[in-house]
Design a protein around this nucleic acid. Structure first.
Lengths: 230, 230
DNA sequence: CGGCAACGTCTTGCATACAAGTTGCCGATG
DNA sequence: CATCGGCAACTTGTATGCAAGACGTTGCCG
């Protein structure tokens, strides 16, 4: 896919080339088309993306700051390998942020509108999504929405960044139907507690929910790595 | 200061040009040599930094992601103006993170070594720093150290980023000796409570301490802006 | 005198050229 | 056969060239 064949859409400025490449690369990491530990060069990515090295470099620089890749001095780039300690720390940050969010939500004089969450999670079993990746995305949305609903955009932004960092392994939590079921039940419980403004009910439930997800993910990831090693 | 006169230090690779420029620009923002709202171009910065536009662009891109500057399409860059709502949100994030940190510190079976903090803040009035900017830096260190001591590096990193965002206005809290005194007293109180692992003492103290700083800073900033407007 | 349109300058976004340094292969040698 | 040295190909870091668009200015027309 040489550079010259790139079709330049003229309708509506197609955002930055840098942004596009940034998003595409990030998606490739999320989709495991780029695996942790994989090495690659700027020229190679530039060729694949039909662009020059300049926007590729800018995109990679951003991905590095986000913690997804690292650069080896004059020796290429590589996708950052898993770091269990770090993943655990991200989960703990999530717990801190989300517990604080729930605390706020329960204390707010004028609780925000959470109709969207009600319609998504307080439904009979027949209305539930069963596709793993789909539930995974919904789960991320649920938790993000809780933080967002407090009205603190910066906290929501930070929560989003943290969520992206654990997204690669998070999906592993939704490969068993048992876990999907548990997710629905627990979200419903948590949401009901928040709507009734029962801080002391909601917080332990939420903490247990995230901790369960964390330990499940850790377990599966270790298992996967062991299997890959064989 | 034309580009050609740049002296290339050959002893020990002088890190990246990009990193240097990034740090210098950030420092200029912190030092008010670049004021909120100031506009500038890449070429201008490149000339001042004795470099080409390339590393300048990379540095600016990073600063934009950090939230310090913004780019106007084909029309230059500018230092992001104050946003009181956002500043308040950053203070709230600090409260969330630091309260969680203190909670953890009080709950840890093997409390970490906080000798450095003791030596800095549990001292008689005679051993206290009185220089405003110096106390400001020490204050930031104190709060950061609390989070760092929990052992969660990611939480510490996030806390650091948040601290940098409020650093420009934070110093305003240390222009009155009354506030410096209060800082010493409150830090001492908080630290003693943490060392005695009195979670329920430490948390309200810390929250009040940060809230006081927040409201003081907001007050002074509004006052300054009003004065500048005249 | 006011409004407007065309033009020139300046800006960023992207591509390309060049410099400095790393890696790995390949051959020579003990 | 193992090891060491050197060279060549690559890779990132930096500088520069080029294009498209934004903004101000200026001159013309109503």
């Amino acid at each position: 896919m040489p550079l010259s064949t790139r079709t330049k859409s003229k309708a509506a400025r197609p955002a930055n080339l840098t942004d596009q490449i940034y998003e595409r690369l990030k998606q490739e990491i999320f989709d495991f088309r780029l695996l942790p530990g994989d090495r690659f060069t700027e020229s190679e990515v530039a060729w694949r993306m039909c662009a020059s090295r300049t926007p590729v470099r800018e995109a990679l620089t951003r991905l590095r700051r986000d913690g997804f890749v690292e650069v080896l001095f004059r020796s290429g780039w590589k996708v950052k390998p898993f770091d269990f300690g770090q993943l655990g720390q991200f989960y703990d940050v999530r717990i801190v942020l989300e517990l604080a969010a729930v605390e706020r939500l329960c204390a707010m004089e004028q609780p925000p509108d959470l109709t969207d969450l009600k319609e998504q999670w307080l439904v009979p079993a027949s209305g539930r999504e069963t596709d793993g990746p789909a539930v995974c995305a919904l789960d991320e949305q649920f938790h993000h929405r809780l933080v967002e609903a407090t009205g603190n955009a910066e906290m929501a932004r930070i929560h989003h960044e943290v969520s992206e960092r654990i997204r690669v392994v998070r999906r592993l939590d939704f490969t068993k139907s048992r876990r999907i079921e548990a997710t629905y039940n627990e979200h419903a419980q948590i949401l009901r507690a928040v709507l009734r403004r029962r801080r002391d009910d909601a917080r332990p439930l939420l903490r247990a929910h995230i901790e369960a997800s964390k330990s499940e993910v850790m377990k599966i990831t270790v298992h996967m790595l062991e299997e890959a090693r064989r």
